[in-house]
Amino acid sequence: MRRTKATPALLAALLLVTALSGCSVSIVDPTRPTPVASTPPERSAPDQPETSPDTTGEEPSSEPTSESELSADGQAERSRLIAAATTTMPCPSAPLTEDGAVIRIEGACPELVVEIDAGVVIADDVGTLSLSGSGTVIYVQNVGAVTVTGSASSIFWEGDTPTVQDRGSANTLRRG
């Protein structure tokens, strides 16, 4: 069998093509609808300025409208996640440990312990919330105290700001 040697120029060209081709990775939530790409309006002539249908110049707000509400985006996400819940239950007596689950906790809960990685918890009223998982999202209406020891998690609340202890890293803890 005849074997050919690759020349340095061929290897350099192959390396250049590989480096310039670029790759991307996208994580997709199968329960979420696919966003529709918007295209800019077409111009009728090159010398005419573009017009926008919104002439007020104001952007829609996604911030909470009062001290006790989630933002419009937060409320929509909470509602979507409630509909996608894999488990609905009253306040558990043991820690939540089902990684990757979407769990809905209904009613008042004096203490909620979450040890979930890459999951979602939607709760109503919680006295003390403890999160030790990573990559977890929690929506809670009212909470008195929050302690987080995990990383890359998000906790959003509606009511008054609780006492917060964040012993983890890269967490988002806020109203909204």
Rank of each mutant, 00 (worst) to 15 (best):
T4C: 15
D125F: 09
S132G: 05
A19H: 03
A9P: 14
T87Q: 13
L81R: 08
G119N: 05
Y139K: 05
P30Y: 02
I82W: 04
L14N: 14
T163G: 14
N171Y: 03
T86M: 04
I27C: 10
T161V: 12
A84F: 08
C23T: 15
G150I: 11
T163E: 14
T161E: 15
T128W: 01
T97H: 08
Q48P: 00
A84D: 15
E77Y: 05
E77A: 12
Q165S: 14
V146L: 02
D47P: 03
D124G: 08
S24N: 10
E111W: 06
G127I: 11
D125I: 14
P110L: 05
G135D: 12
Q165K: 02
K5L: 14
G100P: 09
T56F: 02
T172G: 08
S26W: 13
P8M: 08
R174L: 12
V140Q: 00
V102L: 09
Y139L: 09
G176V: 08
A118L: 12
T149P: 05
I122Q: 03
L20D: 09
T51H: 10
D166R: 03
R32Q: 13
P60E: 07
E106P: 10
S79M: 08
L81K: 00
R43W: 13
P64C: 01
A94C: 00
D124W: 04
G133A: 07
